[in-house]
Design a protein around this nucleic acid. Structure first.
Lengths: 230, 230
DNA sequence: ATATTTAATTTTGTATACAAAGGTCGTTTG
DNA sequence: CAAACGACCTTTGTATACAAAATTAAATAT
């Protein structure tokens, strides 16, 4: 059971998780969620359990568990005794979702401003600089690492809600396209500054602003992709 | 299929919903949630699907769907291939949860301050006055109606999140005991004033404060009930 | 006696089977 | 011809059956 020794990791435990095998239901969730968030499944479409089970070559048991999960996330509307329907997802919904993310992430940022150690703030700065200096790595991973450091000192339930909100929205599909990364760098700089200044209110405001703009960018991206066409 | 005619309703469509029949899974959810929130099921307790199914006289199918839902709510920890365990629920978790509710309800209050019609603000005031004047009705229903008017103008996803946060926390179990209602009246008055003044920021702050205090009250109540005993 | 493997048992995850509610379409009736 | 009724078909919800992983217990070795 020995593992290959590995060199020190510059991310120091703040890397996006490699997905842990759950079960078939989890795979079904990922599949349907992707279908919805890419626009392949349009709002109002009814989900036929049997057909989906046949298509994915599983039984209805994991299908049903997946539908329940997606119903809780608000991506499907579950109507008892008459099935699951893809929920509406208008530009307003997207912006609303990102702004909700904003108020929760803003809370986390406010907490971070008062609780992060100087050491952790330095980590944050280091990641931000790698993000900034153009010459770089996987922007998406660096972005993730930045927010991770801020969010991980938040109390448990806040972290839970952040994870929930993170899942049920387009993210990887639009991030860091069309110069959005340039905007994000500026936002991150402003957030970092407020946290380093220990200014909780300002950190919160700037994080809310960051996520509001993210929402606007996401909508713009989806519109360009023809998400709301025909 | 005729319904009995009924007199005009003073609540004008702002009454707590009478629960609509879903299915067995929903009943199981309600049962387990109550067990957890009343302290009958202690954190760390493993849920035996077969035993629970036998106890409630249903099969494992609705049980499993219920566990998935409660897992999404964060009340259970679902560990793949080894079952569901009652999640920790410390005083910090409760306060955290209420404060999360606060930032979301605060957002709703800020929106309400700019979007409610004068007519709706009058409704709000009317409900508040009935809440205030001691001589009254069902405090819990009036409280619900008050928040309902504020929340219903919020965008769809915000309303979704409010409903989610509302469910997974002790509420009926502690509300309006020990003079909490006196505090709540004052908070409501302050919130109403800010909304009537169209002061979004102040409405938000006061709503956040209201829910923070609610959390503190909930913890105090649970402590008196011996929720964290032995 | 303690630790480690291995066999037995329990428990989860998935598939299938059955019952009942919902939907459809043709027929009937006003 | 439109509305209403009813038989048929489809789809959901629940129960049961089966397979595989995990836990427990037993047995062997150190």
């Amino acid at each position: 059971m020995s593992e290959l020794a590995v060199f020190p990791d510059p991310f120091e435990g703040t890397r996006p998780p490699t997905r842990r095998r759950g079960g078939l239901a989890e795979e079904v969730v990922l599949y349907i969620r992707e279908q919805i968030l890419t626009g392949a499944l349009k709002p109002g479409t009814k989900i036929d359990q049997e057909a989906l089970a046949a298509a994915l070559d599983v039984s209805r048991s994991p299908i049903r568990e997946a539908l329940v999960i997606l119903g809780q996330e608000g991506l499907l509307e579950i109507i008892p005794r008459r099935g699951a329907v893809v929920a509406d997802l208008t530009p307003e919904d997207i912006v609303d979702h990102y702004e909700l993310f904003g108020v929760v992430a803003g809370r986390a940022a406010a907490i971070a401003a008062t609780t992060l150690s100087d050491e952790e703030i330095n980590q944050l700065r280091a990641i931000h600089e790698r993000f900034d200096d153009g010459t770089n790595d996987d922007l998406s991973a660096l972005n993730w690492a930045f927010h991770r450091i801020i969010n991980r000192t938040a109390p448990r339930r806040t972290r839970w809600l952040l994870r929930l909100l993170e899942r049920s929205v387009p993210a990887d599909y639009y991030e860091f396209t069309d110069g959005w990364d340039a905007q994000a760098v500026q936002h991150h700089a402003a957030i970092l500054e407020a946290i380093a200044d220990r200014d909780a209110d300002e950190a919160r405001r700037r994080m809310e602003h960051h996520l509001h703009e993210s929402g606007v960018a996401a909508v713009a991206h989806l519109e360009r992709q023809g998400f709301w066409e025909e």
